[in-house]
Simulated scan of single mutants.
Amino acid sequence: MKMTPAQAVSRGVLTVNGTVMLTMLGLPALTGGGALLLGLDQATAGSTAALTFLLSWPLAWLSWSLLVPRWRVWAYERVENLDALKVRGVEAGLIWREGHFFERTEIRTSQQRQRLRELEQAWSARTINHVSSSRNGA
């Protein structure tokens, strides 16, 4: 099923960034609420939630690092224009621009790396052929 870059990015923001936000904010909220339910005072519950918030950042980053490559494969297979997809993804805060240091924190399996390489090469070939045919026809 083909879709627009905007549609694919919207789904990525919901699934990837949604998971990241739930990890960063949901875990501390659950921890603080759980501490209150266990009868701890508000200061202790707040401290527990704050500590959990600090600890949730690495877990949230790990979630992003594992989910983004899955989203990339999924989106690359469904979107016609990979350049537009990447621009939209960066604008939405879903992915980092190509070559950015943090892009290297994506954790890709060998199968994901291979599939992304194939899809990128196919896109490059289509783009080059399109440019060549446009110049020859002009």
Score class of each variant (00 low, 15 high):
Met1Tyr: 12
Met1Thr: 15
Lys2Pro: 08
Lys2Ser: 06
Met3Ala: 11
Pro5Ser: 14
Ala6Thr: 09
Gln7His: 02
Gln7Met: 07
Ala8Ile: 05
Ser10Leu: 14
Ser10Ala: 11
Arg11Ser: 09
Gly12Met: 11
Gly12Tyr: 10
Gly12Arg: 07
Val13Leu: 14
Val13Asn: 02
Val13Tyr: 10
Gly18Asn: 09
Thr19Glu: 12
Thr23Cys: 11
Met24Ile: 12
Leu27Val: 10
Ala29Arg: 07
Thr31Trp: 05
Gly33Thr: 13
Gly34Gln: 04
Gly34Ser: 04
Leu38Lys: 03
Leu40Lys: 05
Gln42Ala: 12
Gln42Lys: 12
Thr44Tyr: 10
Ala45Gly: 10
Gly46Asn: 13
Gly46Ala: 12
Thr48Cys: 14
Ala49Arg: 06
Leu51Pro: 11
Thr52Ile: 10
Phe53Thr: 15
Leu54Trp: 15
Leu55Ala: 08
Leu55Glu: 15
Ser56Gly: 07
Ser56His: 11
Ser56Tyr: 12
Pro58Ala: 13
Ala60Tyr: 13
Ser65Arg: 05
Ser65Met: 09
Val68Phe: 13
Arg70Cys: 14
Arg70Glu: 13
Ala75Tyr: 00
Glu77Trp: 10
Asn81Gly: 03
Asn81Asp: 10
Leu82Tyr: 02
Lys86Tyr: 06
Lys86Thr: 13
Lys86Phe: 10
Arg88Met: 07
Gly89Ala: 15
Val90Ile: 08
Gly93Pro: 08
Gly93Asp: 15
Trp96Ala: 11
Arg97Ala: 15
His100Tyr: 11
Phe101Val: 15
Phe102Trp: 07
Phe102Ile: 11
Arg108Pro: 01
Arg108Phe: 04
Thr109Val: 00
Thr109Ser: 05
Ser110Cys: 03
Arg113Asp: 06
Gln114Cys: 00
Arg115Pro: 04
Leu116Cys: 02
Arg117Lys: 02
Glu118Asn: 01
Trp123Asn: 01
Arg126Met: 04
Thr127Gly: 01
Ser132Ala: 01
Arg135His: 05
Asn136Ile: 00
Asn136Trp: 02
Gly137Phe: 00
Gly137Ile: 02
Ala138Lys: 00
